[in-house]
Design a protein around this nucleic acid. Structure first.
Lengths: 215, 215
DNA sequence: CTCATTATTTATCGAACGACCGGAAAACCC
DNA sequence: GGGTTTTCCGGTCGTTCGATAAATAATGAG
């Protein structure tokens, strides 16, 4: 290995975890380097020497977030046997994650940087890309349901259904942020799943794209 | 009237409108006083003398926002004759508003300040209160449908249904922010409305609040 | 031990932040 | 006119922003 030079005194993993907690609570722009340095237990200069920049630190934080808090919903999505139970369990896993007593009550991916100063456009697009991936993952799971035979929805409607449940996931974050508890989120999920049979059985979704005169 | 003293050289309404545009694009914390002063065409001291503070300016901006962009969805909600058409049209009016070519593609009420620095907690709660009002307005409209006779859902389920459609509204903002166009939002709305019959006809929503073991 | 290498701390950078003066400018009153 | 009131602009307050340079400390290599 040959670790020459002065050894690091801080543990990168725990430092990253502390940075995650702070970014999660305050968002990207709401978290300052001084805040981060204090929480991580190192000087801000050490953050730059190891993580490169504030933006780069945030990207690594999001990677950690994806493998921790993002894992239960993702696992539900491809461990459940049918498309229906996969979506349903994914929603419930999401609700579980955003109502944990020890973390902020919302999804960091969704609320850490939806808007902000012009100079942080790259960060916002980075998160937007991850959210679009989320939509694609949901859609892929629905497509798998079709090939598995447990879903009979027309291929043309998969896009709409995937976007619909992605929208619900994202809306749940606002609800939890504003104080909705786990039971209230569950009631939303129940309502959202009430559309499933109509969406997947009836082939009447040819008219999904309705032309609508401007108001 | 007796307007003593030096008359104002700027029009408060247009200045407020300019502030609205900037806050809308960059969010609360992402907009600086220098940015605002430049866009409003007045010095930052004039902002303080007339609007009080950055936070107070933002509150007045949100009031303007509510009476402009917030009006179409609100009007749809209580102009439509039935609860169903009211909800449906409210969703479409929302989609119209957040895909207008001349404004940012999201609802300012939802995304201007979901997270941020600790010192701006009051602003976030101010917006959260407005969002909770939004939920209450939807719920009231459903209750009106019950008294009008066009809605047969049990009173216990009104909370869940109102929260569900509020969640969809809020999710739509993220979708539009991430690039979904008007037609894609319409497909989400169609999916969301597909749950209506199931939610309002079947009285099986006694089990809406399901006890769920932690995972 | 000596020296090269790496990590960390301290100090600081220029710029921007929100906030707030002091005074000039422009209207009203009498 | 003079005196008063109000608005506006320029400037600047102390602080904090993200980022960096220099100096110190701690290790392995030779």
């Amino acid at each position: 290995m040959a670790t020459r030079g002065r050894p690091r005194t801080f543990d990168p993993d725990t430092a990253l975890r502390r940075a995650l907690d702070l970014f999660w609570e305050r968002g990207y722009e709401g978290t300052s380097l001084n805040d981060l340095a204090e929480a991580m237990g190192i000087a801000s200069a050490s953050i730059y020497s190891y993580f490169g920049s504030k933006e780069n630190l945030f990207r690594k934080v999001m990677a950690l977030y994806g493998t921790t808090s993002g894992e239960p919903p993702r696992r539900a999505l491809h461990k459940q046997p049918t498309a229906r139970t996969a979506i349903h369990d994914m929603l419930r896993a999401t609700a579980d994650e955003i109502t944990r007593p020890d973390t902020p009550h919302y999804c960091m991916l969704i609320l850490a940087a939806p808007t902000g100063a012009v100079e942080n456009h790259a960060v916002r697009e980075f998160l937007a890309d991850l959210r679009r991936d989320m939509f694609a993952t949901v859609k892929d799971r629905l497509a798998r349901g079709v090939t598995d035979g447990d879903l009979t929805a027309p291929a043309a409607g998969l896009d709409a259904i995937a976007r619909y449940y992605t929208t619900v996931v994202q809306g749940l974050s606002i609800q939890a942020r504003d104080g909705a508890d786990r039971a209230e989120l569950e009631s939303v999920i129940t309502c959202a799943m009430a559309a499933w049979d109509t969406l997947t059985s009836a082939p009447s979704h040819r008219a999904m794209i309705s032309s609508r005169s401007g108001r």
